[in-house]
Design a binder for these strands. Structure first.
Length: 611
DNA sequence: GCCGTTTTCGGCCCGACTGTTTTCAGTCG
């Protein structure tokens, strides 16, 4: 997806350059928007733009919303030549280095142009120098205050803004949400934005609260212990930076606007723009305060999201789907897919114990899975011998572990030894990503631990444990943990070989990515999926928030091609079962249903469906 | 420059906040 980012960046920069030089005629304003919108569209594209072009050519590019003839041509030019002449020309004409400027917050192209024309500012360090020397305040329309604010923005930019992994910030976001909910005079409070859509990374968090006294709530929010700095404050809204560096916004509305505000604040932006266009076509106006009839300006909906969508003749759309990726058309026709629910999983097929790199015993992991997360089964998938770092198990140790698991299962069936351990180990789960709602059901006596392994796939695609041994286990997952830097052909062959192995049930974290850290190894996912389908091999969605592997694009592909999937926590500690929700969210974002995910089945049916 | 239940021209989502504006432009989400 490197090309997607490159192209999106160029399109945004074209928009920026055009805006910088825009004379105030309307045509160019909309031209600027077109380039920016096209940039967003490419950035949000779930598939690789090079693939689209190689398979469908120019027509494939034109199929992308917001991409028309002119921009499609420029994308084609970039894919085939590595350059866009139009962009090069604009850039050379301008003599301003916008590579830094275009990412600077609250200082836009118009302001930069003024600095250039007045002070010959060409890059960020010029601007910093001009501000430090007090030259900004001398420009008409600027002031010392503005100059100071610019200085601050530059410092902030230098620190670098990043997106946070959802699992990293989940506890903090929930904690603030709960506190807001409990504040006097607040009848509802909820974290919205990309957090509510459960994106794998979160840029900032947007809170919505219902209250008749917005000022009181805003002041309370500003005074929270997690607040580093208040960035802006108005009658209904406040923007601030938390001391972990993340920005948080709060919007306070009356209860009759809750639904429209929730819809507005949840986004995505693209989804909202599309929904507002539908409102407009019906003679309505949609904003955070409600749906209004343009004829008499009366509010006709707004207290609930359902009401807002209903008046636009749309079914209510799950937040995870709101990306303007076709969900609105389906909602119009009443044909939205049934998504897997957050309490649909019955088991977890990748769980580690302290026999290798886990931190707790098999019994402790099982106890947590059963009592705290309401699961009916887990597979203990410790690493195998070639993974020396984790003290991986050899053949004999795997067999011994499987025998021990049988004994534990017997004890569980007899209702043995769980109760007294419960309180000691599991009561300290606050501040984790564990929610109350994670506990969906509990108290079954039919809990089962499956003997299993996370077998290491060697450089040549063979496994480090004999099939003879693996066939004695209930479940076998295979994964790559070494030799990442192979060609795409070699890497794909490795995984295909593993999938073709009759003992391998599941390929764990198939692409090896670590979000924000590591791209993952190169593989031809289409080929792997073909083989997975032919051999009835399951592909995993590893729900650990730094992996979420398969990613959304591939899950979508798997769902479309009827490839069996499972969602596993990759738990190394009992609290990690809470990660399952991130995997479920990822599946929901890819429109997966319950039937696409095998570990929504009971243990017997699951085992019948494996190789 | 893009787009189509006002369909190949004439529109283009919408409002909050900031600064210094006494009515608005710039920026953001």
């Amino acid at each position: 997806m490197k090309k997607n980012i490159e192209i999106a960046t160029i399109l945004r920069k074209i928009g920026y350059l055009l805006e910088m030089n825009q004379e105030n005629d309307n045509n160019s304003i909309f031209k600027v928007r077109s380039y920016k919108r096209a940039g967003e569209a490419i950035a949000d594209l779930p598939s690789n733009i090079e693939d689209i072009y190689s398979k469908e050519g120019l027509a494939g590019l034109l199929n992308i919303h917001s991409i028309g003839k002119a921009i499609a041509g420029k994308i084609e030019e970039y894919i085939t030549t590595g350059k866009i002449q139009y962009f090069e020309k604009l850039r050379s004409e301008n003599n301003i280095n916008i590579d830094e400027f275009y990412r600077l917050e609250s200082i836009g192209p118009k302001t930069i142009k003024i600095f250039h024309d007045n002070l010959n500012v060409k890059n960020l360090s010029d601007l910093e120098k001009a501000a430090a020397e007090g030259k900004i305040r001398k420009i008409p329309g600027f002031s010392q205050k503005k100059e100071e604010s610019i200085m601050k923005k530059i410092q902030l930019f230098k620190k670098g803004r990043e997106r946070y992994l959802i699992g990293e910030v989940y506890p903090l976001i929930k904690q603030i949400e709960e506190r807001l909910s409990g504040f006097e005079g607040v009848s509802k409070a909820i974290a919205t934005g990309s957090f509510r859509r459960m994106k794998e990374t979160i840029g900032d968090v947007d809170y919505l609260a219902v209250s008749d006294d917005p000022k009181k709530v805003i002041d309370y929010f500003a005074a929270m212990p997690e607040v580093d700095e208040v960035l802006g404050k108005g009658q209904h809204k406040i923007f601030l930076r938390l001391n972990n560096g993340m920005d948080a916004d709060l919007l306070v509305v009356p209860k009759e606007s809750f639904g429209s505000a929730l819809q507005y604040f949840t986004g995505s932006k693209q989804h909202n723009v599309a929904v507002r266009k539908i409102a407009l076509a019906k003679g309505f106006r949609l904003n955070e305060w409600g749906v209004f009839d343009n004829n008499d300006n009366n509010r006709i909906a707004g207290s609930s999201e359902e009401e807002v969508y209903r008046i636009l003749e749309l079914d209510w759309i799950h937040p995870e789907m709101r990306e303007n990726m076709g969900e609105i058309e389906l909602a119009k026709k009443g044909k939205l897919p049934q998504l897997i629910q957050y309490n649909d999983l019955k088991g977890d097929l990748q769980v580690h114990s302290n026999n290798t790199d886990g931190t707790m015993s098999i019994e402790d992991m099982a106890l947590a899975a059963k009592e705290k997360f309401g699961l009916e089964y887990i597979a203990i998938t410790d690493h195998t011998k070639s993974l020396k770092l984790t003290n991986g198990l050899d053949e004999q140790e795997l067999i011994d572990q499987a025998n021990k698991i049988k004994e534990i299962n017997d004890k569980i069936r007899q209702g043995f030894y769980y109760k007294e351990k419960e309180d000691n180990n599991l009561n300290n789960m606050q501040n984790s990503v564990h929610d109350k709602q994670d506990i969906t059901k509990s108290g079954q006596n039919n809990f089962q631990i499956l003997s299993a392994a996370e077998v290491n796939i060697m450089k040549d695609g063979s496994l480090d444990i004999s099939n003879n041994t693996l066939d004695k286990l209930d479940v076998v997952g295979a994964a790559i943990h070494s030799n990442f830097a192979q060609t795409i052909e070699v890497q794909t062959d490795r995984l295909i070989k593993a999938a073709q192995n009759p003992s391998v049930d599941i390929i764990f974290h198939p692409t090896g990515r670590l979000i924000n850290k590591r791209e993952g190894y190169q593989i031809n996912v289409d080929k792997l999926m073909e083989v997975a389908k032919d051999t009835n091999t399951v592909l995993e969605i590893d729900a650990h928030y730094d992996r979420l592997d398969l990613k959304e694009e591939y899950i979508r592909k798997a769902v479309q091609n009827d490839i069996n999937l499972v969602i596993d926590s990759d738990a190394h500690h009992p609290v990690h079962f809470a990660f399952l929700k991130f995997g479920i969210a990822q599946a929901r974002r890819a429109w997966a249903g319950k039937s696409d995910i095998l570990n929504t089945l009971s243990v017997d049916r699951l085992l019948n469906n494996l190789k």
